[in-house]
Computed example of a mutant assay.
Amino acid sequence: MNCKSVFLGLSFLLFSFAAMAQNKKGSLEIVKDPMIDLLQQSRIVFNNTLTEDEPEVRNEKGTRGTALGFRIQIFSGSSRNEAYAIQSRFQQRYGDISTYITYTQPNYRVKVGDFRSRSEAQSFMAELKKSYPSVFLFTEQIYVYY
């Protein structure tokens, strides 16, 4: 057997397989757990509550939406217990102002208020400096009622 005949034989096999692969039509069957659809739907609902396209929430204050505004940070530290204690003390003193605890490793942060204007936030921040020495003003998405 010479190289030419081996080459021709291999070429013939290669081209025949390529031709057969092009002529085959297949079907695709997707098998998935029905819980995947449920999980996707709940994730869509959760993500929509965090955007401006959120469904309207009505309560005694009015319709809730989000806007760019200001919050005051009154605590930042690694102690979870201290963060919740500071939040509790703040709520006892200022019950009508919302508080928010976030965790970004390694720190817990306690932020307060949903202020639409910087001047409103700064005037409240001046009052808070008496009780909370290290306060900071942040611009972020806040909840507004209209």
Results as ranks from 00 to 15, higher is better:
102 T>G: 03
57 V>T: 13
13 L>H: 03
20 M>Y: 08
128 L>S: 02
35 M>T: 10
19 A>R: 04
125 M>D: 03
77 G>L: 02
102 T>Q: 09
57 V>E: 10
103 Y>H: 12
144 V>S: 05
34 P>S: 14
112 V>I: 13
12 F>K: 07
90 F>G: 03
88 S>D: 11
25 K>L: 03
146 Y>N: 15
121 A>K: 05
64 R>Q: 11
3 C>E: 15
48 N>D: 12
142 I>W: 03
35 M>G: 07
42 S>I: 11
74 I>H: 02
38 L>R: 09
41 Q>M: 05
141 Q>G: 08
112 V>H: 01
18 A>C: 11
40 Q>A: 14
110 V>H: 01
111 K>S: 05
96 D>V: 11
40 Q>T: 10
65 G>Y: 13
107 N>P: 03
100 Y>M: 03
45 V>I: 14
83 A>E: 07
69 G>R: 12
112 V>S: 02
30 I>T: 13
128 L>C: 04
143 Y>L: 14
58 R>C: 06
109 R>G: 01
115 F>R: 07
23 N>Y: 08
109 R>A: 01
136 F>K: 12
76 S>H: 01
42 S>W: 13
78 S>E: 13
67 A>W: 05
49 T>L: 15
2 N>I: 07
10 L>E: 09
131 S>R: 04
119 S>M: 12
87 Q>C: 00
17 F>S: 12
127 E>Q: 14
64 R>G: 00
1 M>G: 10
95 G>F: 00
26 G>N: 11
1 M>L: 10
39 L>Y: 13
86 I>A: 01
79 S>N: 15
57 V>S: 05
132 Y>A: 08
90 F>L: 09
83 A>L: 04
17 F>D: 04
36 I>F: 07
93 R>M: 10
29 E>K: 10
97 I>A: 11
40 Q>I: 10
71 R>D: 03
40 Q>V: 08
140 E>A: 09
137 L>K: 10
69 G>Y: 06
48 N>L: 12
96 D>Y: 09
7 F>T: 12
44 I>A: 11
65 G>W: 12
87 Q>V: 01
63 T>Y: 09
119 S>L: 15
129 K>Y: 03
54 E>D: 00
4 K>L: 13
77 G>N: 02
139 T>V: 14
25 K>P: 01
68 L>K: 12
96 D>K: 12
141 Q>P: 06
131 S>N: 09
35 M>Q: 13
97 I>Y: 10
118 R>K: 15
44 I>K: 10
128 L>E: 04
70 F>R: 07
135 V>Y: 00
141 Q>C: 01
116 R>K: 15
117 S>R: 14
90 F>K: 07
87 Q>N: 08
53 D>H: 11
104 T>P: 00
127 E>K: 15
6 V>G: 00
93 R>I: 03
95 G>W: 03
1 M>F: 06
53 D>A: 14
17 F>I: 11
107 N>Y: 15
113 G>F: 03
9 G>Q: 08
77 G>M: 01
30 I>A: 12
97 I>D: 08
80 R>H: 04
14 L>S: 14
63 T>W: 04
90 F>T: 06
58 R>Q: 10
